[in-house]
Write a protein that binds this DNA or RNA. Sequence first.
RNA 1: GCACCCGUAGCUCAGCUGGAUAGAGCGUUGGCUUGCGGAGCCAAAGGUCGUAGGUUCGAAUCCUGUCGGGUGUACCA
Length: 557
Amino acid sequence: MQEMTTVLATVIHDLFGADVKAELTRPEPQFGDYATNVALQLAGRVGKPPRGVAEQLVEKLREAYGERVSDITIAGPGFINIRLSDSALATAAEAAPTTPPQQFKGQVIVTEYSDPNPFKVLHAGHLYTSVVGDSISNVVEKAGGNVHRVNFGGDVGLHVGKTMWAILQELGGEHPEKLQDVPENGRSEWMAKCYVAGTKAYEDDETAKAEIIALNKRVYQLFADNDHESPFAHIYWTCRQWSYDYFNVFYKRIGTPFEKYYPESEVAPLGLQTVRDQQAKGVYEESNGAVVFDGEKYGLHTRVFINSQGLPTYEAKDVGVLMSKWRDYHFDRSIVITGNDIDEYMKVVLKSVEQYEPELARRTTHFTHGNVKLQGGVKMSSRKGNFLRAVDVLDAANEANRAATGRDDERAVLGAIKYAFLKQRIGADIIFDPKESVSLEGNSGPYLQYAHARARSVLVKGGTAAEHLAELDELERPLARKISEYPEVLEKSAREFMPHHICTYLYELAQIFNRFYEHAHVVGDPREAVRLKLVSLYADVLQDGLGLLGIAAPERM
RNA sequence: GCACCCGUAGCUCAGCUGGAUAGAGCGUUGGCUUGCGGAGCCAAAGGUCGUAGGUUCGAAUCCUGUCGGGUGUACCA
């Protein structure tokens, strides 16, 4: 593909010397394997009719491509359609599962996503961003990137004050020994309940609000004093650990591992210091007792980085985590994935950092995604406590799967959820339909898992596959062509950081395979060896693609 | 008010660095099964791509206005 494009570029240059971008696209199968509209673009610049330009190009292209193409034709207003020779197509298909484009080779890429807060519960959004972030990481890794998956979370901050306040109420004061009364398997729920109670108190009760603000400050002080001994410290550290245990169990369950956590407590000092230093240089300024960045100069909001208590807000901590990642990895690219409510806020943070670390800001890309909503469900609000938790999504899918298949299958359930989340372009809200997600029919994860298992079972039944594909008949050709597209899909997914292209492709691939399989016999057919090779390539691509989505591809289901 | 995201078939979504009749799945209607896993295949119905302009040989795709939904707008994250 890459080489085909280069040849086209050379021909264009030799013939017209014009600066048109040589591009080959995948047209409808009826038109050929590749197509280009460069003749249409050139026509205007050279002042000749498109078809005339196309004719000149075709003549040269036939020569330049030689054996690799079997046919080049002109269609419509001046499209050039190229049909590969069987041998060229066979070579491309054989290479497809194992030769991903390496556009990130040698680059250090840091991906940050999920970002749950200790002392709070994991909600559906965390599940979503974990799945998306993991897949993007996989895709970049496949493209040669040296990927570091990191996770940023608030172990200090007002929400901690809120939860701690309610915890102290529950314990009847600073009595860490009473934490033993909380059952081990109910810890995260107990803390989630405390957060909701603390939030309510903060909103409804002035005295409680003042206490929470004081507790927040006290938590910061724990770190300043390195206090692990006082009763208050005991409670804090124990509950903090409970949260991290809970996160780790969760990530392990869904299969999205992280290399490193950046707790806010760790990055806050650096953030605070950076903001103070840059305040001296005029980047940030004092306003009503707080330190702010005047985003309005850039058409953005003005936001508080250090509050009037002298504590860093999320903004300063984010400066801290950006600087920490920069210090730790000196990345070529940093990808941050969050919900879209963070969008404008992050623009302010990055704009401020751009003033003193322009390279860091330039190398950082922020992607935002929408909210997860249950089909026909209600909007979630983490403050009020009526929201969709991560486990709710897992439970709903598991229940739907049990209803559909009569058994529990975590691999299928996770495959269903991940695929349902990933098949959609990142950006808009996700309407999650548990029933549809676990469906074995249609565009779903389990469907693709099944498609893979089915192909593998054919391979088990069949004899020895051919080493090479050689010539292809009209049943085999469309499948070989689709398989050969795989590297191009990976390239696009990596370039755009968009895994959904892989989903779309895999589903189309499975459809084309089913069409092939419906009409062509494999085992026992005179063409068995070649067809087995094709089935094997197909299964390899499915397995590889599902792997990039973080979805298991079992041999049997 | 201002800013950001989103408006494509009944529902859920692809397609958006402009290009050939706007594609899938679900749902609806009809057909195929002595099958290598039919969890499939073949076919039909269903769309003024929110809307009005503009740029272009060509616009779902780019620009502007407008309508609708969501989010954000200083000491939460």
